[in-house]
Design a binder for these strands. Structure first.
Lengths: 367, 367
DNA sequence: CTACCGTATATGTACATACAAGTTGAGCAA
DNA sequence: TTGCTCAACTTGTATGTACATATACGGTAG
């Protein structure tokens, strides 16, 4: 009797599970009563109860006092094959993130994955919290848009624990060389270059730049902006380069622009803006003076957001993959999950931004 | 002895859980043996086993045959109490939904819940799919923004299964009287009324309305628009009321507006638009003629989105709670979960939209 | 027909006992 | 000291009983 190795209550469990799997018992069927089973299998009712107790815990059965024991409905039992993927983003509602999330969501849904969403509000503490909550239940993969990237990677050690748990992850909008994961980024340096190049080719020589410098995105755009000046051998005037922090975005660029526009003799003829939001903001600033866009000031934004075409003067801007990036992230992550390639920084992608010329930039009058 | 209502094995469970929470027992501490507990609490060893069994199932304890019973390490135990809540929305990236999601997400995260997000793209089939995937693992609650509401509730039977599973849910932006759940809605009829009222009080008499009529939101706004005309005894000209479907939103309102503006003698003096997006669109339409906003045409939008202030002429519009609504939905849902009130349509909320007067509406010249 | 009351039967709680099986450490023998 | 046995613990399995409590159903009084 080799089967004796398995305790009776487990043998009974196997037997009942086979009834369920073979369809001998269907959802909502009533089980034989505890006493019936006990008699049939020549065991005591308490042992049957032990078996039923485990099967109830695992969701196969449910019991109703006075009525009997029943088989659970399928959705409660076979919950196994849907996997979950998390997205950790900085600001859910701002700007272009909804488009990224949308791209990822639809790609995931098509492939039968669920999406967990959490935002960090660019707060390291919240980032840790969010990671904790996400990993509280089985997670198949994670898409991360990191927090405050220009200051390094605060939760690095935390992300490394993902490696330990063999949870594949990738990063969007940012790349950390020290982390061995794919990253999907826009070549912001190229974007900054193209923005400045476009204006220079239109004859502009005094170009102001407004860049948020507490994330790598802003710093890279600024780098490209500077490189274009060097490349075309245009002197870059320090007083025309404004950098600001996230907290200052409502005031500093606006006020700096007003100040610049007040100096009639050394006034810039074009603005390159960190993104469309700031561009719209500076468009306002220009309007408060007697100057006009694009006649007096040409304006270039970034990201090709919905704001860019909402204005009367449609913004010239640089494209951002948005939805495509989200969808790509989802696809690559699923590929990593299915092929068990938990690392693979070679799977990343770099998107080249395209210049979209609209109405906010014109040839400068050669006087 | 009122406490006698609770079975002994549950009383013991509470007691032991309190030991864990107060730190009297720390992770990896050894528990007293089953016999010791049995003697201390004057109960049989079997009863203690029943308690220990549940606590082990729930991850608080682990047992080693021959050695004893021990307290689990934190990561193993508290993985239990993170619950998941789903949001089912029509379009993730459009317009105001990101703000709703953001409000809900931050309220949920504060309270230790995770957020599952899924969008339906206003497709009944996808709605069913999304529901399936969401419920494939334990779900504590669901926030639903229903699909195509003006045509009835296609997946009604599906939602009723939520009742059966005792999953609390609520609806936002829409109310179905036949469903016994709370709903958070904006009083769109009131909004439509206020928009028209504002223009009427500014002296406008020929007011055109553009309404999307394949959801209740649009129909209610239209209702309010009509009611205002009746209330002020202004004749409502049928040719000035345009209704369109979601698929037509890019062409029909725009073209209708152009046509209207072409008729010099019977030209309307104001537009009420279904939302800010259409308002911006019609602002474009006006610009293509030689007319101006607000001098020739006053314009009222809906929802107070970011688009409303992106334009040169800031839009007069009606407020929408957005973030607040998302946060409220999350709070109410958590309340329902914690108080086991699976039904409770009385917990809903109706938001009164406020008129936000900006630059796109002016007093009509009394000629 | 309705309201009420048993009865039968189901699960829920509680206790007692017995033995199996794994762990530990004391104590003894080589 | 080393290696062994064995007693004394632990948890695991199994069975027995008893009573509480919820449900369904049939019969009876009104």
């Amino acid at each position: 009797m080799k089967e004796k190795q398995m305790p009776k209550y487990l043998q009974l469990k196997q037997e009942i599970l086979s009834w369920l799997h073979t369809g001998r018992l269907k959802p909502n069927d009533q089980m034989p009563s505890e006493n019936e089973i006990a008699e049939q299998f020549q065991m005591s009712r308490q042992t049957v109860r032990q078996t039923f107790g485990e099967l109830e815990q695992e969701g196969w059965l449910y019991r109703m006092q006075g009525k009997g024991t029943f088989v659970s409905t399928p959705q409660t039992q076979k919950s196994r094959d849907v996997q979950t993927i998390g997205i950790l983003t900085t600001y859910i509602s701002d700007y272009i993130f909804p488009h990224i999330v949308r791209g990822a969501e639809s790609a995931l849904r098509e492939r039968g994955y669920r999406l967990l969403l959490s935002s960090t509000d660019n707060d390291k503490g919240k980032e840790k919290e969010s990671l904790d909550m996400m990993m509280s239940q089985p997670l198949s993969g994670l898409i991360i848009e990191p927090t405050k990237s220009a200051e390094g990677n605060p939760n690095l050690s935390y992300y490394l624990s993902l490696d330990y748990l063999h949870i594949p992850y990738l990063m969007i909008n940012e790349r950390y060389p020290e982390m061995n994961c794919p990253s999907l980024v826009v070549d912001d340096e190229e974007g900054g270059f193209k923005a400045a190049q476009h204006l220079i080719e239109l004859g502009h020589r005094r170009i102001a730049g407004f860049f948020k410098t507490d994330d790598l995105q802003g710093i890279n755009r600024l780098k490209g902006f500077i490189r274009a000046h060097h490349h075309y051998q245009i002197p870059l005037l320090p007083e025309l380069v404004i950098h600001y922090l996230t907290e200052e975005k409502r005031q500093k660029p606006y006020e700096s622009a007003i100040t610049m526009l007040g100096q009639a003799d050394e006034r810039p003829t074009a603005f390159v803006c960190y993104n469309d939001e700031i561009a719209i903001h500076l468009l306002e600033a220009v309007r408060t003076t007697s100057l006009q866009v694009p006649q007096d000031i040409s304006l270039v934004g970034f990201d090709d957001s919905s704001l860019a075409t909402a204005t009367e003067v449609k913004l010239t801007t640089l494209s951002h993959p948005k939805t495509e990036m989200g969808a790509d992230a989802a696809k690559i992550l699923i590929d990593m999950i299915q092929n068990k390639r938990a690392n693979g920084s070679e799977m990343g992608k770099v998107y080249k931004p395209e210049l979209i010329v609209r109405e906010s930039t014109i040839q400068v009058s050669l006087s």
